[in-house]
Simulated assay, not measured.
Amino acid sequence: MTEHKFAIVLGTRPEIVKLAPILRVCDERCISYSLIHTGQHYSDELDSVFFERLNLPKPDYHLDIGSDSHGKQTSKMLTGIEDIVQTENVDIVLVQGDTNTVLAGAIATSKLDAKLGHIEAGLRSFNRDMPEEINRIVTDHVGDFLFAPTEESATLLRNEGIDESRIYVTGNTIVDAVQANREIAIEKSAVLKEHNLTPGEFILMTAHRAENVDDPDRLASILSGIDRVARELDYPVIYPIHPRTQNRLNEFNLTVPDTTRLVDPLDFLDFLRLEDTASLVITDSGGVQEETCILQTPCVTVRDSTERPETVSVGANVVVGTDPEDIVNGAIEQLHKSTDWEAPFGDGTAAEQILDILL
């Protein structure tokens, strides 16, 4: 077997969660790697606590990029990643998802004598106004190993002219992560008690995407729609809010309805426990759409499109936009559905499959 030196690049909470299974399998197999954290999520409560609670090794490199414009943030990451890959003589770089961290890792690697592996390849929302969509497309087209979570994602890659030899359907590492941590969350998380929540009698909400929270009208519509759902069901809403979104609420002078409880960002185990026990989740997060599908929790997506259409196909999710009436109708529709759908993202062995392919 050829000895490879990997670099694993991450920078946000979802990347930490979805790459955790890769890190664990590398450690189990004594595979050498350098862990590069760009610092795209830059506050401690959004970052280091994830490594601690998930028992992950501390990064070998931390670029401390922090917040900035897309161009400045990406250029700083690109420079830092390039230097490390060259210094460490890395021959395979792994990135996951669609963030600026992923884009920087992809561009840096494409200019060097190293191969790029993209985990969660082939996702498309077909909305090029979303920065994430551009990041996905660029990364897939410069990638050498494209690990598609589903056959549908692989088909989208083929439709863009990408050679079959670069495409591998492996499932999604989020299944590995959810399966590994669901029971741990039941045992260790006290989030329900801390927030006085009864399983099956509350709504979990997230909203963080720029197209929603940077638009005062869309953000106000989402808050209004969720308030109407809460009153219709007589359930409280719990909303772990990102600091950036809180700043937008203040900037737009928007008031959160009485039905909605704002809480600080949660670590993965606490958030997983809420997803697992909520009666309904209303979100604009792609990762949350996947996780609720795996956990058999109904989901309503407050966006105009989704790059996870499989969640809609199996009945786990409905995409409603941001009109309050559509949010209410979507919520009622989801709550009246059976939750016995089959999650389409694999069997929980994605990390094993990905490393088998690379090695």
Rank of each mutant, 00 (worst) to 15 (best):
Met1Thr: 02
Thr2Cys: 00
His4Thr: 00
Val9Asn: 03
Val9Arg: 00
Gly11Asp: 01
Glu15Val: 04
Ile16Pro: 09
Leu23Ser: 03
Leu23Arg: 02
Leu23Cys: 00
Arg24Ser: 05
Arg24Glu: 09
Val25Thr: 12
Val25Trp: 08
Glu28Lys: 14
Arg29His: 01
Leu35Gly: 03
Leu35Pro: 06
Gln40Ser: 06
Gln40Trp: 13
His41Gln: 08
Tyr42Met: 12
Leu46Arg: 05
Asn55Asp: 14
Lys58Phe: 01
Lys58Gly: 01
His62Asp: 15
Asp64Asn: 15
Ile65Ala: 14
Ile65Pro: 04
Ile65Asn: 13
Asp68Ser: 12
Met77Ser: 11
Gly80Asn: 09
Ile81Lys: 08
Glu82Gln: 12
Asp83Lys: 14
Ile84Trp: 11
Thr87Lys: 15
Asn89Ile: 00
Asp98Val: 09
Asn100Ser: 14
Thr101Pro: 10
Gly105Ile: 01
Thr109Cys: 11
Ser110Leu: 05
Asp113Gly: 06
Gly117Ile: 02
Ile119Phe: 00
Gly122Trp: 12
Asn127Leu: 01
Asn127Trp: 00
Arg128Pro: 03
Asp129Thr: 11
Glu132Ile: 09
Glu133Trp: 14
Ile134Met: 06
Thr139Tyr: 05
Thr139Trp: 04
Asp140Leu: 06
Asp140Arg: 04
Leu146Val: 12
Ser153Lys: 03
Arg158Glu: 14
Asn159Pro: 00
Tyr168Trp: 14
Val169Asn: 11
Asn172Arg: 08
Val175Met: 12
Asp176Ala: 05
Ala177Tyr: 05
Gln179Phe: 09
Ala180Arg: 15
Asn181Gln: 13
Ser189Leu: 06
Ala190Cys: 12
Leu192Val: 14
Leu192Glu: 14
Asn196Phe: 07
Glu201Leu: 10
His208Tyr: 03
Arg218Val: 12
Ile222Lys: 08
Ala230His: 01
Ala230Thr: 06
Arg231Ser: 15
Leu233Ala: 03
His242Met: 11
Arg244Asp: 09
Leu249Ala: 08
Asn250Phe: 05
Glu251Asp: 14
Asn253His: 10
Asn253Ala: 11
Leu254Asp: 13
Thr255Trp: 06
Thr255Gln: 15
Asp258His: 12
Thr259Asn: 10
Leu269Trp: 08
Leu274Ser: 12
Thr277Ser: 15
Val281Gly: 01
Gly287Met: 02
Glu290His: 01
Cys293Trp: 10
Cys299His: 07
Val302Met: 13
Arg303Phe: 05
Arg303Gln: 11
Asp304Cys: 07
Asp304Asn: 15
Arg308Val: 10
Glu310Thr: 13
Thr311Ala: 15
Ser313His: 12
Ser313Cys: 02
Ala316Thr: 07
Ala316Asp: 02
Val318Thr: 14
Gly321Met: 03
Asp323Ile: 01
Asp323Lys: 04
Glu325Ala: 14
Glu325Ser: 12
Asp326Cys: 02
Asn329Leu: 09
Ile332Trp: 02
Ile332Leu: 15
Ile332Arg: 13
Glu333His: 14
Gln334Pro: 01
Leu335Ala: 08
Lys337Pro: 00
Thr339Trp: 00
Gly348Asp: 11
Gly348Arg: 11
Ala351Asn: 10
Glu352Leu: 07
Ile354Gly: 13
Asp356Leu: 04
